[in-house]
Design a protein around this nucleic acid. Structure first.
Lengths: 185, 185
DNA sequence: ACGATACCGCACATATTGTTTGATATTATT
DNA sequence: AATAATATCAAACAATATGTGCGGTATCGT
């Protein structure tokens, strides 16, 4: 990728995230972005068709960072096992989320959070699906999968937005304790 | 309230919900609304300052309907008790939600869903707070309250948006079964 | 050094917004 | 039935945002 493109793209992302900290997503105009990023109008549209595409690209970047590396091998899907288990994986994700906290908090602060959360839930569904058979329940799979991704994503939202003192491992532990399993019986 | 106002307000609401079924919230313009509602420009602004205010008013109307009447007395806060318990209350709420399904589905279909969900969660927090002491957990109250309102609201979202065959009482039962309590031990 | 291309600045037509004006029609009240 | 209040309307308005197109310039990769 051309250095100029990298530079411009980065400038747009930075301007955008700054603006998200200042005002609501829907109130941010392309004009605002190109002013703060100090780029030409046509340059912006050469990179992103719309403001929505920009947001989507930003989220994609963040998720690539968060879900990139697995903390351990996928050998075991026993979610309370110390190594490669669900709890460890969630803790790992929470650490990554914590790294980008300010950025994510800005996104979650308004309607743009919707897109972030939808994306996040999709990633989580893939993750939780592997552990479905560990869960003690009569409820149908689709219910359970939505319940888990929904509850965890909402937990993350709360954890990120509200300034609280809990550490990633604590959140993961609390969350796991709410899942009906052999261990939590 | 003046009959003219009632008529206009109703026309605006109807036009707005119709439009929400056709296109995304952010792509709906005030122009669209006044065209479909067949009212004058200044008339719209006499009723609502912005499109956001209109959405907020619509949500308020819906929630007033959903949370208006209690199914039973508030005597007992034992949530698995058959009468006045949490499960019955949730079932009742789900029935109301089902009544306004199409309307709510339109709202949830795009960014406007964010506002709806935030509002919904606030109402749910008030409800769940009464049952906090029934829950077996080591997690702090603020975590639990957010977990419950988050997981239930996400369950509702899934239930409303995805066309599925589950009845209100089934959803309530599945949800309750995921809460750690004496009964679910 | 050179061809490719990303950027810029500017301009343009189009669309939306929010406000104002004065006239008209409907309402609530007496 | 008459009257005063007011909700609505149509039209016009400036201000702003959008998306696109153009030639010229600077920077890039090779």
């Amino acid at each position: 990728m051309d250095r100029r493109q990298q530079k411009t793209r980065k400038a747009i992302f930075e301007a955008f995230t700054k603006l998200l900290g200042e005002k609501r997503y829907s109130n941010i105009t392309v004009q605002d972005i190109i002013d703060k990023a100090n780029i030409g109008r046509s340059t912006f549209y050469a990179h992103f068709e719309t403001k929505d595409e920009l947001l989507k690209a930003l989220c994609t970047d963040i998720f690539r960072h968060i879900f990139s590396d697995s903390p351990a091998s996928e050998k075991t899907h026993d979610f309370s096992k110390s190594n490669g288990g669900l709890q460890e994986k969630l803790t790992h994700i929470l650490h990554h989320l914590s790294d980008s906290r300010q950025e994510i908090k800005s996104i979650l602060g308004c309607e743009s959070g919707e897109l972030f959360m939808v994306n996040f839930k999709e990633y989580l569904c893939v993750l939780f699906e592997k552990y479905l058979n560990e869960i003690k329940t009569q409820a149908p799979k689709e219910f359970v999968l939505n319940y888990l991704s929904g509850s965890f994503s909402e937990t993350v939202r709360w954890w990120i937005v509200e300034k609280n003192e809990y550490r990633p491992c604590e959140i993961a532990e609390y969350f796991i304790s709410f899942i009906p399993s052999e261990k939590n019986a």
